[in-house]
Design a protein around this nucleic acid. Structure first.
Lengths: 126, 126
DNA sequence: AACATTATTGCAACATAGTCGCAATATTAA
DNA sequence: TTAATATTGCGACTATGTTGCAATAATGTT
């Protein structure tokens, strides 16, 4: 399964990059010039996730958000993504806070995925 | 809107209590003897939330889980619920870890809801 | 440059989770 | 017992995300 460079992948990645935030499927579709099918957008995003270019978080609205990986998982093979995300209840922005979080788990527990979201009002909306 | 004691509310609360964990709608429906409509279960659970008897978290599977409030929001009017939840990828159990978490936010950010979920394998499944 | 291979796309259909309107029912207080 | 109204069940609906399949397009090779 070698990856191919297509119009869709380039454009979706560009939207994510220029935004700098975590975006949901519909945000991406809005910010995109051309018409890309919903299913395609999801497939492209999930491919990005498999390749470690992007990480996915589930908002407290139940929706999937995707953000470009910066300091997570590039250096190590271990994808951590254990930083906190903030979702603004007013403007809808979802951003990665750089603060990493080491959570001590009880004996015998093994962490695989961190999904840490705080929602409230961002600096622009508070 | 005074609340009434019904068969449904009693039974749903009992299931939550005896489980001790956070349960999703379908888990509740399974653990219930009688037939209660899906919509009713959701309405009852959301009423519990409004009354502060229960708190809701969104799992990293995108589903809603409900758990009885213990040390959150009973004492204070401020509902914090800023503890961490653990979801087992094997057995599906979602539990509240008692560890509370004080997350320092950037200047100008106001936290309203904490949705902190770590998934992996619990002590029984690891 | 043309071709063969196969990753990717678009479309439609599907799946699931959750919500809502409304009439019927059941709880509460009088 | 009765009146008022909170709650329920049913059905329809919305939204988010996934999948199968045929058509399309990107890539390496000749």
């Amino acid at each position: 399964m070698k990856r191919r460079n297509t119009h869709s992948t380039a454009e979706i990645f560009e939207v994510l990059k220029s935004s700098g935030n975590a975006l949901s499927h519909d945000m991406i579709q809005e910010n995109i010039g051309s018409d890309i099918d919903r299913a395609t957008i999801y497939r492209v995003l999930n491919r990005f996730c498999e390749d470690g270019k992007v990480h996915k978080i589930i908002g407290d609205d139940g929706k999937q958000y995707f953000a470009i990986c910066h300091n997570c998982g590039e250096k190590k093979k271990v994808h951590s993504h254990n930083h906190i995300h903030f979702r603004c209840l007013q403007c809808g922005k979802v951003e990665c806070l750089e603060r990493d979080l080491a959570v001590p788990l009880p004996e015998g527990y093994v962490a695989k995925v961190h999904n840490l979201v705080i929602s409230g009002f961002c600096n622009n909306c508070s």
